[in-house]
């Protein structure tokens, strides 16, 4: 939209510009009608709840009887609640395992898939398919496969001479099993993102390095991986944020059990708000999570701001 002052001569073009400008003035109203549905839904169901949640978190509220103001009591209670600290620990453990594993497998598979051999499209499809399966179906399917009594997993272990495992019913294993299921379904996403990024590695850069006598591994270490850095940072952020918000899979498979070993933060929030009807307490926990996510998001953006991609250019020389 040009905001230059109108020239004095009136060529055809100028007349067109003036018509355009006149029509633009009238279009504010039109624009608002276009944008209104989005504004009402998006702001109405995020900004309003955003503020409402904050107010709720200062109240004791069971969603039925009138609530009362309790100040920071909910937050105080959170710091002393062993269930909440367990939920935080579980979520962090899940995240610390799931994010690097899915990314490492993703990078490895993308590097292997990034070559011109037959059937590579089929391999990619098979690896990616679990990603589009809903967490519900994943949970139901693995509850079946890992069923301690009738599951296929135990019969395979049995055939290998390994004793029967509890999997999701064993407090020592359940969280690790959830990580494994998530790696199964989440790796495909990392593969696809890394593959797309690998296509963008400039061939000239590779050619130059090769002429300088770089071997395969050197090429990988000094050229390919540095150019992938922005994507790696993005994936780290994306996977971390998603991991901290894990819920559906937990709800379907373990409902936070056994013995609270898989209670994650969002499960804790859901339980407080919609099972125990302590909405204010749940809202306070949700705020703690939201602030953590925001800090990670802002922190990552800061890291990303310092564009490490230039390193690739330097490394190739």
């Amino acid at each position: 939209m040009s905001s230059l002052p109108a020239p004095l001569t009136l060529s055809d073009q100028d007349r067109q510009r003036r018509t355009l400008r006149r029509r633009r003035r009238r279009e504010s109203a039109t624009a608002w009608t276009y944008i209104l549905p989005a504004v009402v839904v998006i702001l109405g169901l995020s900004v309003v709840p955003f503020v409402w949640s904050l107010l709720l978190s200062f109240r004791a509220d069971d969603l039925v009887t009138p609530s009362r103001w309790v100040g920071l009591d909910n937050y105080d209670a959170l710091t002393q609640d062993p269930h909440f600290s367990q939920a935080v620990r579980n979520t962090l453990l899940y995240t610390v395992l799931y994010v690097p594993l899915s990314m490492a497998f993703g990078l490895f598979l993308a590097l292997v898939l990034n070559r011109r051999i037959r059937l590579v499209g089929l391999y990619r499809t098979l690896i990616f398919v679990p990603f589009i399966i809903s967490a519900t179906a994943q949970g139901v399917l693995f509850s079946f496969i890992l069923d301690p009594e009738f599951g296929a997993a135990n019969s395979v272990l049995h055939a290998l001479g390994i004793g029967r495992q509890g999997f999701l019913t064993d407090p020592g294993q359940a969280l690790l099993v959830l990580v494994a299921i998530s790696v199964w379904s989440g790796t495909g996403f990392c593969v696809v993102i890394y593959l797309a990024a690998l296509q963008d590695v400039p061939p000239s850069l590779l050619e130059a390095a090769r002429l300088d006598g770089a071997g395969r591994l050197q090429l990988l270490r000094h050229v390919v991986l540095p150019t992938l850095t922005p994507v790696t940072v993005f994936l780290l952020l994306w996977q971390t944020i998603n991991a901290l918000q894990v819920f559906d899979l937990v709800y379907v498979t373990t409902k936070g059990g056994p013995l609270g070993s898989t209670t994650v933060i969002v499960y804790f929030i859901w339980e407080q708000a919609f099972k125990n009807f302590t909405a204010g307490y749940g809202a306070a926990a949700a705020y703690v999570l939201a602030v953590a996510l925001l800090v990670i998001g802002v922190g990552m953006r800061f890291v990303r701001g310092r564009r490490p991609a230039v390193a690739a250019e330097g490394a190739a020389r």
């Binding site: 702001l43 995020s46 309003v48 409402w52 709720l56 819920f247």
Partner: peptide, 21 residues
């Protein structure tokens, strides 16, 4: 800017009030 900012609000934060709405 306001709409972009809403993308940073996680669903867990809005789900309780959205239920009430």
């Amino acid at each position: 800017v306001a709409m972009l900012a809403t993308m940073a609000i996680p669903f867990q934060l809005t789900m309780i009030p959205t239920f009430l709405i």
